[in-house]
Write a protein that binds this DNA or RNA. Sequence first.
DNA 1: GCAAAAGTGTTCGCAATACACCCATGC
DNA 2: GCATGGGTGTATTGCGAACACTTTTGC
Lengths: 223, 223
Amino acid sequence: MLFKLAVDCIILAYDPGDNQLKVLLVQRENEPAKGQWALPGGFVDEPEDFAVTAARKLRQETGVTVPYLEQVRAYALTDPTVGQRLASVSYYALLEWAHYAPAADRTHLAQWFALPHVPALPFDHARKVQDAWQRVQEAARNRPVPFYLLPPKFPLNQLQRFYEALYQAPLDNRNFRKWVKGLPYVEALAELETNVSHRPSQLYQFKASAYAAFGQATRLTPY
Amino acid sequence: MLFKLAVDCIILAYDPGDNQLKVLLVQRENEPAKGQWALPGGFVDEPEDFAVTAARKLRQETGVTVPYLEQVRAYALTDPTVGQRLASVSYYALLEWAHYAPAADRTHLAQWFALPHVPALPFDHARKVQDAWQRVQEAARNRPVPFYLLPPKFPLNQLQRFYEALYQAPLDNRNFRKWVKGLPYVEALAELETNVSHRPSQLYQFKASAYAAFGQATRLTPY
DNA sequence: GCAAAAGTGTTCGCAATACACCCATGC
DNA sequence: GCATGGGTGTATTGCGAACACTTTTGC
């Protein structure tokens, strides 16, 4: 028994404009579900690792090049209208918001949607988005996820709002700052925001070098 | 491009005899890797969910019926000698040691191997075992994994040795017992071990009813 | 001077860790 | 009575949680 194999990409970015985690969707140009918003992806049609296929499809459809893709899981397509046997493997990627620069030769219209407000999605894409989101939440407990999603320099309150968006829960500002200051891989810069109509915030950055040693020892998520 | 899709099963059980987590392997009866120990599994050849296929293959090859299977992830088979495109999806299951009762009509010789000492495995099976083990370790942080692996009645020290086997790390006996006694879903029985040449241990059991409420709140893993 | 967001300390309770000896049984 | 594994308590420490006001800037 043979299968067509599809890959789906859940591209996530943190929009500092409205402090929301967003997922990139494309408008389908073919049946089924033509015209609807859906996850970018496509059928595996080259003898290469699925992640490579996923990155290529993503590049074609959205014009975005992502640095890496992390597998979420495989799904047996349950749609009873498809006669042929189908399976799909989904991947998530974390993208810095400012790096979103769709190439001109993309084949689909792409748009960001805030995670708690994604539109109704065809097939099992809604579930895939949920699964991926949950995986990122879990990943953030073991790895420095915000490193991939925040700009190189950021104020602490932005980091806090990122975590609030990721876990959809408010955090105590003082406890949060206390926690961050204990982290070995976040360092303060001697630089302030400018041109804001309120007290300017100090900027921070991630120290990539300090990551390697951690992951087990220090707590990576805020309270 | 079409794929043959395989499923692989990582069946885990806790052997109270030597206090080790073990994985069930079968001896391959066909090429490639004929005669070697490998994970039970096979090609998906029916239009059904992969997990169902996995359970059926498992039943055929080892004679074991497992209550459920949990997906680990999908793999693109990287073996360059296979001309045809192959993918595989692996599943793990947790089995109570005493429930291992292979049916007579099984097609392969099956044997348990202690997790830290699995033999060299063909294909990418070694990696699959490692991935599955890690997933079980993670699952134990959110779900009552020992419930599936220990007998209905067990002494506390057996539970401790299970956790020590799972995480390959020694635990402090007094702290462990203190922790267990705080769990709402482990209850002491008015029953003792018998016929042991030392002080008999008290038996405990899991209270299935108390699981539902937890998973987030109470810490599920020992120190 | 006012609006808007940044930044700052302390207290309390509990959970995590470390640690050494007595107990009950079979032989 | 001795070998074997089962069982017990306390003190310390550091982290998680709760909580309200002052500071700096642009306009």
